[in-house]
Design a protein around this nucleic acid. Structure first.
Lengths: 206, 206
DNA sequence: AAGTGTATTGGACCAGGGTCCAACCCCTTA
DNA sequence: TAAGGGGTTGGACCCTGGTCCAATACACTT
């Protein structure tokens, strides 16, 4: 089996074969890997959700339309960056799409340059999103290894409290806090309070 | 002079007097404070940019149009939340507006409920934005009080380095670092490394 | 030339943090 | 009942951090 080395794929979902062919030519000329689907259902079913890339989505299609697909993608684990392409869109539809996180909402006929620019933006957002997801799940996994007590202690550490204060708040002795704190920091793979607070803050804020 | 106690104001900018009257009635019935302007220029000139609230902006107006106003507002210090209201908008226009941070892009005629909901969202976003701006400028002011050396030291503290390492990196003695670090923490009004890292991270990430 | 602010260094002292040792209690599971 | 894990405690030791004291050197301004 051929192995694709993190090649970024542009998925094209459109019921119009001419559009699929035109987009494929345009995108492959730019050295993108292209994968076409003629309807929403088979795209959702067969495309590899975890692969890096983005999707160009027609709005008007028989069966599921583009907006339905977007909603379905949003409910999944991996965020798939979406570019809408439509012949008969409306303003409320486009506004709703962008508010839901679509990269752009383009109207046919679309200029080649504009489409390619948008694809670049989408792929860049996909990279950032992937990085963020990776950090987030990594942090979550470390967090879940903590016992209740260790988590309580770290929450106090996050607030800048001293071991003495934490001990008083939790009603245990100083030595106990030191042990929990040490074990918790180790589990979180944090070499310093700064590391812990930075990661925790980014995790909570994002 | 009457003092308005942080009353939230809904600014209405539309060249159609009938629309201004209708919106004023609708919004005042919900106990909002309303301020009307017949053209973009006088709105930008005379409305109090720092006051809490949001603006309902007509797109098609003689002189500056609504999108121009949005751009002008974005370049100012205070972010003013914008709701677009248009009779003849286009999809690219609406997409560009939302991508630039507009709360919504509504089309005339608009349902009263929808408008009021949108105003609520805009005011909530205004509150959050104000809170963020306040935090950000406060942090910036504290940051600017630091000397070059103190800032260098804090950057190393942010990375979780020990005083010993910082001293080696900067080519000075341990004692010197301790002095700078203490003074810098005091200037930043940070009672602990946790406070410092949390604020600094939020400042950088936002 | 005097004054101010910044950067630097020294010593000394105390408080706090981290980690090694070992031990006990309680609860759940095998 | 026995084993294991989590929570707890104690002591000892060393490193680190924070702050008090005081002092020197340099650059810029008045």
């Amino acid at each position: 089996m051929g192995q694709e080395f993190a090649a970024e794929t542009v998925y094209v979902v459109d019921d119009d074969a001419l559009i699929r062919i035109a987009l494929t030519r345009l995108l492959e000329a730019e050295a993108y890997r292209v994968e076409c689907y003629a309807d929403a259902e088979s795209f959702l079913k067969f495309h590899s959700a975890g692969a890096p890339g983005c999707v160009i989505l027609d709005v008007e299609m028989p069966g599921m339309n583009g907006c339905d697909v977007h909603q379905a993608l949003l409910e999944g684990d991996m965020k798939r960056q979406v570019i809408f392409l439509t012949g008969h869109g409306t303003i409320p539809l486009s506004v709703s799409a962008i508010k839901s996180g679509a990269v752009d909402f383009l109207t046919k006929p679309v200029a080649a340059d504009q489409l390619l620019d948008t694809v670049q933006v989408a792929l860049e957002r996909d990279r950032l999103s992937r990085k963020d997801t990776k950090f987030r799940s990594s942090f979550q996994m470390r967090l879940e290894k903590l016992t209740t007590r260790e988590c309580q202690v770290l929450l106090h550490v996050m607030e800048g409290k001293m071991n003495k204060q934490i001990a008083a708040d939790l009603g245990v002795t100083l030595k106990t806090i030191k042990v929990h704190r040490g074990r918790a920091m180790h589990k979180m793979q944090a070499n310093s309070v700064a590391d812990l607070v930075r990661d925790w803050t980014l995790f909570s804020a994002g």
